[in-house]
Structures are given as structure tokens and as C-alpha cells.
Amino acid sequence: MSVIDDDEPVRNALVMALQAFGYTTATYVDADDFLARGREGCGVVVSDVRMPGTNGIELTRILRTEDGNTPVILLTGHADAALLAEAMSAGADALLSKPVALKDMMAEITRTAAFYGLSS
């Protein structure tokens, strides 16, 4: 599981929640950090949409262009119909609004991981 968010408290909270559910996590301060550090075995990518540099939508497009098999769940504090359409068009598996209920996030991660044949 890869967690990408430029907001450190949000990133840390996501990691703690995921680890509590048994997921192994790697963290990245932004999409550029994720892209620079290599992504072998990155699992489900949980990324903020709005970050400095490459944003979550652009990251999704890059991942879809490179291999098409990296699951991506995007998080945003500013969801609307246009952003949802853009995220889905880019190839995101889901767009969740912050603050996201833990049970909703875990259900989406579980569904997405199962679809791609991944485990924790």
C-alpha cells in the first residue's frame, strides 16, 4: 500500500489506520517523491488529489500510461462532479471525499485490492 499526501498529519493518520487493518504501507510526501523513488510492488496507491508538483489526477494518468495495472484511490477535500469525472477519466478506481469515514475508506481499499488480486 502506498500513501501519498503532502499533509503530514493526514498522511500519518492514513498510515496508522491502514496498519491497524494489517496493511503494510510506504509513504510519500507527494506524487513526485513517489515517482522518483520507484514503485515496485506499490500495491494500492492512496493519493491526495491536490499537491504541489504532480497532482493525483496527473499521477493516475502516468500510472495508467505506464502499466495500467496499478490501483489508484484518490482523496480530496474538494469533491464535485467535475473532479469526479476527471478522476474517473484519468483511470482512478475511486475518488473519496475528505474527511473520509474509516469504514468507507477500508471498504473501498478492500474492494479495489480484491479486484486487482492484491492482499495486505
Rank of each mutant, 00 (worst) to 15 (best):
S47T: 13
Y28L: 11
V46D: 00
F21D: 15
V15A: 14
T54E: 12
N55V: 12
V29I: 13
D32I: 01
F21S: 11
E40I: 10
Y28S: 12
F21I: 02
R39T: 04
D33R: 00
V29W: 05
D48F: 08
A20N: 10
T60N: 05
A31G: 06
V46E: 02
Y28K: 01
T24F: 00
R37C: 11
E58N: 11
T54W: 13
D32M: 09
S47G: 09
V44F: 03
Y28T: 03
T60Q: 05
A26D: 14
A36I: 10
R37Q: 15
G56A: 07
F34Q: 12
R39H: 14
T25A: 00
V44W: 00
R37K: 14
P52R: 04
Q19M: 14
D32G: 06
L63V: 08
N55L: 06
C42M: 14
A31S: 01
Y23G: 02
G38Q: 08
R61V: 11
Q19E: 15
P52E: 07
G22C: 01
M16G: 12
T27Q: 15
E40R: 14
R39S: 13
T24P: 09
V44H: 00
L59Y: 00
G38M: 09
F34N: 00
V45L: 08
F21T: 01
V46S: 06
V49S: 01
R50G: 03
V44A: 02
D30R: 01
G56M: 04
C42N: 13
V45M: 05
A20C: 04
V29T: 14
V44Y: 01
T60L: 12
R61K: 15
G53S: 12
V44Q: 05
P52N: 03
L18M: 14
V15W: 08
A17M: 15
T27R: 13
L59F: 12
N55Y: 08
E40G: 12
G22N: 07
